[in-house]
Amino acid sequence: MRGRFAGSARSLGALFVVVVFAPPLLLLLSGSLHRPGEPPKPTPDVIPDPLSTEGYALAFEWGGLLRATLNSVVVAAIAVPLSVLVASAAGFALTQIPRRIRNAVVGASVIGLMVPATALLVPKFAMFRWLNLTDTLAPLIAPALVGASPLYVLAFYLAFRAVPQDLYDACLIEDLSPAQTWWRVAMPQVRPVTSAVAALSFVLTWSNFLDPLVFVYDRDLFTLPLALRSLATLDPTNFPVFLAGAVLATVPAIIVYALAQRRFLK
């Protein structure tokens, strides 16, 4: 009795959650399908009338979204695999080195997690400028050197530490180098972590707005988030156009995130 009641109460609650949390994303979609330049309606029209994809066409035309998408794809294609490699290699190396150095690196990683990105913008900007790397895609790929986020390095470290020590010992007996052990034995044991880190670092890279905002000025190098911003400043009242752009930027991130989340909450 009690179980069944709790179950239906839970379902009711879940339904409520859907009703509250689904609208923003649904509205994003609905907004993008309005016809640009229509006068405002007195009542909200969730299902646009007329349904129009004109916003998408205009977004591409005005915002240079094709070019921006290409830039975003280039950045993600380099940064995501690089992030996974750097984070997993570092996470594995942490299990192999003396404790004192490991603690120092873990401590520095935690500091790295605590410092807000905005706090580092000024010196990073000065540094990239000095290296003549502003107005290139390099500063957008650079975060891959910290594995997109030190959090992912720590996640890999914990995952590798959880692999039974005997497996590593068996590799030592077979005379594998640490790099071989990492690639041939350790990585296959932590596939769920690898796919989660790949997905999350993709979302992080794909959505990165602050870095391109500060480091990139050349329109030809705009990534999708930056192109969206300039699209919105172009005509802030023509919402179907920039919402169409927002949908385009959102879809890949959401698909990847949903896949990762499904895997995580198994």
């Binding site: 959650v17 859907v18 949390f21 689904a22 923003p24 994303l25 509205l27 994003l28 907004g31 979302v203 794909w206 959505s207 707005f209 999708l224 988030p225 930056l226 969206l228 911003r229 919105a232 920039f242 919402l243 752009g245 927002a246 949908v247 930027a249 959102t250 991130a253 959401i254 990847v256 995130y257 949903a258 989340q261």
Partner: peptide
């Protein structure tokens, strides 16, 4: 899904929404 997904929307797209 409904609760998890908004966090995945790129900041700028979320802002524009």
């Amino acid at each position: 899904t409904a609760a998890a997904l908004p966090a995945a929307v790129p900041e700028i797209a979320y802002g524009l929404l």
